[in-house]
Write a protein that binds this DNA or RNA. Structure first.
Lengths: 223, 223
DNA sequence: AGTTCCATGGGTAAATATACCTAGGGCAGA
DNA sequence: TCTGCCCTAGGTATATTTACCCATGGAACT
């Protein structure tokens, strides 16, 4: 009754079939996401888009026949509504800047974890941008200053305490109870919970728990 | 880190292997519950208890060598901490009264749904009693008057509206938003949500969502 | 005709969660 | 040493949830 929400349709563009299949497999665990197709180079990509338009394009930056950067420009010009997540092995500032200025919505390293890919998709789906945590180190100076006033900075992973609190939140405990369990002030629990909401870009605990459970951030043991 | 909670250990006593296996199979979907053994008659039951003591005994009322009623009395006398859920095909007042006065904690019909079994276990686990909804009709007069002032009456199933609201709660919506979706007053949503918490014997929405999702009360489609 | 349940929604109060702010101590890396 | 990050935790304000109370109208069943 509630959920007639359409799936978020994703197109994969990468010249390595292995990587395409890995991503497809990962995404297939999430019923809200659907990989509607795969293409191996820039020409195929443009041909495909004439037939079928995805919500999100996951695009390898080094692709034959049309570089990823060029592809971003063209796709964004022809189909402004398609969101683009760049997938790259280049830890290089220039690539990033070019991709972003060409219109990409996110920039993910191939070394990033599965969790990161899901987070990236989630953020882009919500109209935000995403940047690989791998880059945050090298890019710290410029990027951080650029994002400093952006409350939902994209290069965040969970700390130990946050994981602990997340597990307790999933169990449905109140802050007061969690505070007793961890021998902390309820205010500290509030702080960690707020950080979790911010990092996952969620508005309340129910959504947080749903996302965390479905994407394997917690191990469900209790009933 | 959070969940070192021990499993809830259940012993099945029924002379029909098929029923035992059905229950075992149903329970095995829930990681917090563990069937530690099965016995086929009253003697076996008492022998088993000398070796291993469960948290909950699910007991067929018509069992060879020791009737279910007798078994309840003996077990409760020897092991007062064991909770007992009577499983029966008898829609008969007398059986119910005898079972209850002998010390049973719950009374479930074999015609009841899987959902009902899980609800029954959950309620007993929380120290409450349980009565099959099938009986509530025949027993309406006496039982309802007996439970009238008991806020958490055990024979409740979900209404259509409650199922609708439950689905929206699972999506993490606030009452205000749900009210807009269903063109109702937020107060009405609150009412339904409160009924859901009461019927499932849960303290907050996170627990409610967890229980509902894990036991198939909602169909998860979104992310 | 009476009873019960459902769905609707108002009143009130307390508990909890969420969103901002601030700040200090500890630790690690540049 | 300086800087950033994590963990700690307090202040304040608002939003939301939860828990009680209450009533009315309709549908269904007896």
């Amino acid at each position: 009754m509630a959920r007639v929400k359409p799936q978020y349709r994703i197109l994969l563009a990468d010249d390595h079939a292995l990587i395409r299949h890995g991503i497809r497999n990962l995404i297939s665990n999430n019923p809200a996401l659907e990989v509607i197709g795969e293409v191996g180079d820039g020409e195929e990509l443009l041909e495909y888009l004439k037939v079928k338009v995805p919500d999100l394009l996951i695009l390898d930056i080094s692709m034959p026949k049309l570089t990823g950067i060029e592809a971003v420009s063209k796709v964004k010009k022809l189909y402004p509504d398609i969101k683009i997540l760049m997938l790259t092995m280049h830890k290089n500032k220039q690539y990033f800047y070019h991709a972003m200025s060409a219109g990409a919505d996110g920039y993910l390293m191939k070394e990033d974890s599965d969790e990161e890919l899901l987070l990236a998709i989630k953020r882009i789906q919500n109209g935000k941008s995403y940047l690989s945590p791998y880059l945050s180190q090298d890019f710290a100076d410029d990027v951080i200053s650029a994002y400093r006033n952006n409350r939902s900075s994209p290069f965040e992973t969970l700390t130990k305490r946050e994981r602990e609190v997340l597990n307790l939140v999933v169990d449905g405990h109140t802050s007061k109870v969690m505070a007793e369990m961890l021998h902390l002030s309820p205010r500290t629990i509030d702080h960690h919970r707020a950080n979790l909401l911010r990092k996952f870009d969620m508005k309340n605990s129910v959504d947080l728990v749903n996302f965390a459970v479905r994407n394997g951030f917690v191990t469900q043991t209790e009933q």
